[in-house]
Amino acid sequence: MTSIKILKKRSAWQMLLLVLFFTSCTNQCTRPCGEFDFLDIHVIDSENIGGWVYNGWEMTVEFDFTPADCGEDCTCDKIAWVQMLRAIDQSDGTYLYINEEKEDRATAEGWHIDRLQGKIWGYYGRNDNGTFAGSVTTGSDVSTASLYDRPRRGDAEPYLGYIWMAVSVPVCIDNAASTCNNNLLGFYEWGWMTSDASDVGTFHWIAPKGFKDDFDAAVAEWNADAAGLGYNNFPAFTRLSE
């Protein structure tokens, strides 16, 4: 009788653990081919900068590529980043942009590739000559790739009751001989929000699976407009990260 009780107890424990395990991120999140590390440099909360009061976040996201995590044994000597973002006015749910072009090339869900208008590459921080700005350190299968950003908005309407979100995606590029070339290696979501009272909250985590389709759509929007704007198309990407 006692052993039956214990068995029942064990089954209950095991069931609980199974439930915990399968309802954790593994079930809802993308699976990176390596490890992300997020560095919260500085939360900008109602700070006076050069005469204006801002909210926002200064951060760095890093990625160490481990091909074996996704069942690959490829090498890659240049890992860059593509970042998509969107911002939402929480008072009415509508999207906010920083210029006309970004609105034009946004998806129906408000996502758009994060690049300064006029830059010909869609890769984050890539200069027109193919080098990268100081905001990006390209990585490889043996070195860390990093992306620095500092989004901020005025501490006033419509940026109170506001949510800003980005998905940063490391991608192997310029490695024609590698089987991982143009492979998407992971998806990391991060962002910040302001309350109506201008309090700033932040968040960051491995992106939910649903954002992978949003990413594909943002890339497709970029490519659809690229020729007309004199920009370079993104190549066809493969999701190494599931």
Binding site: F21, S24, C25, T26, Q28, C29, P32, E35, F36, F38, I88, Q90, D92, G93, T94, I163, M193, G201, T202, F203, H204, W205, I206, P208
Partner: peptide, 30 residues
């Protein structure tokens, strides 16, 4: 598994996703 899935206190991923759903409803209404 969860080591790379840090959540800031007060803003959970579940809440975030739920907020986004609510904002979609609000947007449609707008």
């Amino acid at each position: 598994v969860l080591a790379q899935d840090e959540e800031k206190p007060g803003i959970t991923k579940a809440q975030h996703l739920s907020d986004l759903e609510a904002l979609k409803v609000k947007r449609d209404s707008t």
